[in-house]
Design a binder for these strands. Structure first.
Length: 258
DNA sequence: ATGCCTTATTTCATAAGA
């Protein structure tokens, strides 16, 4: 079974490539972030033509998350449990069950800068995600929580840590937010399978950044122990980032044997 | 010190991303 996660930076801008990539890569379950469209504008037909059923949670041209599956999908749950006051009602979280695995597509708020109100929002959002996962016994059942977490968990996840020392994505508070998710018992399987430096999932669009591998590892796949134990490979598909008119994120592919 | 690029919509400008 293959489960992938990809921040596509607008699904409508590159739906043909995303669907063809998923088919060619034999992805069974694809978690998408930043679809940047409302439900009525999501290109369901293009996915259906390739055999994927899609659950989408989007509102307008910001945020938006989806789960595309060719192995069935049910128990779809958008957002946090219960009514949410703005901005916690932004479409950034979607859970569903696919072939016996509970999958979560996650798009953590950016934070913008350490002195911006969005930074505090980001920290609270991460804590709410922790509470949501704890309430659903995420570590007790087959669970994959993947997406764009907008946090580089450690200095090794940044091409130039000094440059990011006082910026969002690298602060101790944000890293603690990720740490609390791991404290639940979830495991960072990208890092487990790729312990060395230079392992990134995002590169700035500016010229040369990708070519020189000046990136960040901010897309994560956090798995319960039962899933983490049966993962046979983790692949960050840099070819997709090298494609014409790409997303600024590369897809992360998990190969597992259930 | 700042912009570089890309997306979308309120388009020849702005907000947001990370």
């Amino acid at each position: 079974m293959r489960i992938a996660s990809w921040n596509v930076n607008s699904i409508r801008a590159r739906v043909d490539y995303v669907v063809s990539w998923a088919s060619a890569s034999e992805i069974d379950v694809l978690l998408l972030q930043e679809t940047k469209c409302g439900d009525v504008d999501f290109p369901f037909d293009a996915f259906a033509a390739a055999g994927y059923t899609v659950a989408h949670h989007g509102l307008d041209h910001y945020n938006g998350v989806a789960i595309a599956s060719r192995v069935g999908i049910d128990r779809i749950h958008p957002g946090f449990t219960g009514p949410q006051r703005p901005p916690f009602d932004e479409p950034r979280l979607l859970a569903a069950e696919c072939a016996g695995v509970r999958v979560w597509s996650v798009y953590v708020p950016n934070g913008r800068s350490l002195d911006d109100p969005h930074y505090r929002y980001k920290l609270v959002w991460l804590e709410r995600l922790r509470a949501e996962l704890a309430a659903t016994d995420a570590t007790e059942r087959r669970t994959v929580v993947a997406g764009d977490f907008n946090v580089a968990p450690a200095d090794i996840d940044i091409y130039d840590p000094k440059r990011w020392r006082h910026k969002t994505h690298a602060s101790a508070e944000e890293r603690a937010g990720i740490g609390h998710l791991l404290d639940l018992g979830l495991r960072d399987v990208i890092r487990e399978h790729h312990p060395g430096p230079g392992v990134f999932t995002w590169w700035n669009y500016r010229p040369g950044q990708f070519e020189q591998n000046r990136g960040l590892r901010i897309d994560l796949a956090l798995c319960c122990p039962a899933i983490a134990d049966v993962i046979t490979g983790v692949h960050i598909d840099r070819a997709a980032r090298a494609h014409e008119r790409p997303s600024d994120h590369a897809p992360v592919v998990l190969e597992l044997t259930l």
